[in-house]
């Protein structure tokens, strides 16, 4: 809980700094866009959070976004598939990718890093292959579906700002994810095996099945994100669509309190982390003329955040240990 306060505080500070540095930060257009991007990245970040809770990693997210984001309009345009069929295909592919990752990781005991790194390369390569590097979009069709990403929900009494539609999807995903993680036995199993897989297995938990589930959730939400991203921008280039999104997602999850050692994480934290990532990007875009240093700044902020968190944690552990000792002596 404390961690969420910390990251929320940081988010507010960065917002204030950006607002002071650039007038356009608080413009309705900018805010709307920022909030929309936060929702889209929030969805894929929640996905990777599940994997991180188990102590694993999913590096393939950006490429899954690419595969789905390019594949959906490609199927619609090239094969004129009915929309529900095309959506069913991308859903099946997303779930299948997670299943494949999970099975290789649990049954063959190959490190998640390696498996998903290969996925990162393969899915983008496959996409570039079948699209022949052509850009695909929806043109002026499917507006009804595109509302999911581009629509706005006007707020009563407030003009100039409306809640972007992806927040509906994000809220549904976030609520379901939070209930799953915190209220069901399977969520508890994920946390337990993330901290100590062996002890979880000795306690009668089918750890392999839970790990596979985490990878399925991750790639499914990446696929959902891919659909929403392409509905939003209406044009996907296989060369760079979704490029490094996995890093934004992982960074958001880590900033939001997920430990890469596993066993820790909260959904609210991940969403705040995703927001912080987007505000940082926005700040760089608005306040500097040299947006090419974006990664330098984002990298530095995350590093400082993680170091600060580690120091606070060590201090807390030492204090608690001293307390426990004092209690034991009395």
């Amino acid at each position: 809980m404390k961690k969420i306060f910390g990251i929320t505080g940081l988010l507010i500070v960065v917002c204030i700094i950006t607002a002071l540095a650039s007038e356009s930060f608080l413009s309705g257009y900018n805010l709307e866009n920022l909030v929309r991007r936060t929702a889209l990245f929030g969805i894929i970040s929640i996905g990777v959070a599940f994997v991180i809770v188990t102590g694993g990693i999913d590096l393939s997210i950006g490429s899954v976004v690419c595969l789905v984001g390019c594949g959906l309009p490609w199927m619609l345009k090239t094969y004129h598939l009915p929309l529900p069929v095309a959506l069913a295909v991308v859903a099946a592919v997303s779930v299948g990718i997670g299943l494949l990752h999970g099975l290789i990781i649990t049954k063959l005991r190959i490190q998640p890093f390696v498996v998903t790194l290969c996925g990162l390369m393969m899915y983008r390569g496959i996409t570039r292959g079948f699209t022949r590097d052509q850009t695909f979009g929806f043109g002026s069709n499917y507006d009804g579906l595109r509302v999911l990403s581009t629509g706005n929900i006007p707020l009563p009494f407030i003009k100039g700002f409306a809640i972007p539609a992806p927040w509906i999807t994000l809220l549904v995903v976030a609520v379901l994810a939070a209930i799953f993680l915190n209220r069901t036995i399977w969520g508890r199993y994920l946390f337990a095996l993330g901290r100590n897989e062996e002890a979880a297995r000795y306690s009668g938990i089918n750890t392999d099945r839970m790990v596979i589930l985490a990878y399925v959730i991750s790639s499914t939400l990446a696929g959902l994100g891919g659909v929403l991203f392409v509905l939003d921008v209406n044009s996907a280039q296989p060369v760079d669509f979704g490029n490094v999104y996995e890093l934004y997602a992982i960074a958001a999850a880590v900033l939001g309190g997920c430990s890469l050692r596993g066993g820790e994480g909260s959904i609210i934290g991940v969403i705040v982390g995703a927001a912080l990532m987007q505000v940082l990007r926005n700040m760089i875009m608005l306040t500097t003329t040299r947006t090419n240093i974006e990664f330098a700044i984002i990298g530095a902020v995350i590093l400082l955040g993680v170091i600060a968190d580690e120091l606070v944690k060590r201090y807390a552990v030492r204090r608690r240990a001293a307390k426990a000792l004092a209690a034991g002596q009395s």
Partner: peptide, 15 residues
């Protein structure tokens, strides 16, 4: 193999 160190007493007992 026995205990999940980072989890609480309650969560370990009920696992």
């Amino acid at each position: 193999q026995g205990i999940v160190l980072g989890m609480s007493v309650r969560e370990n007992v009920s696992l």
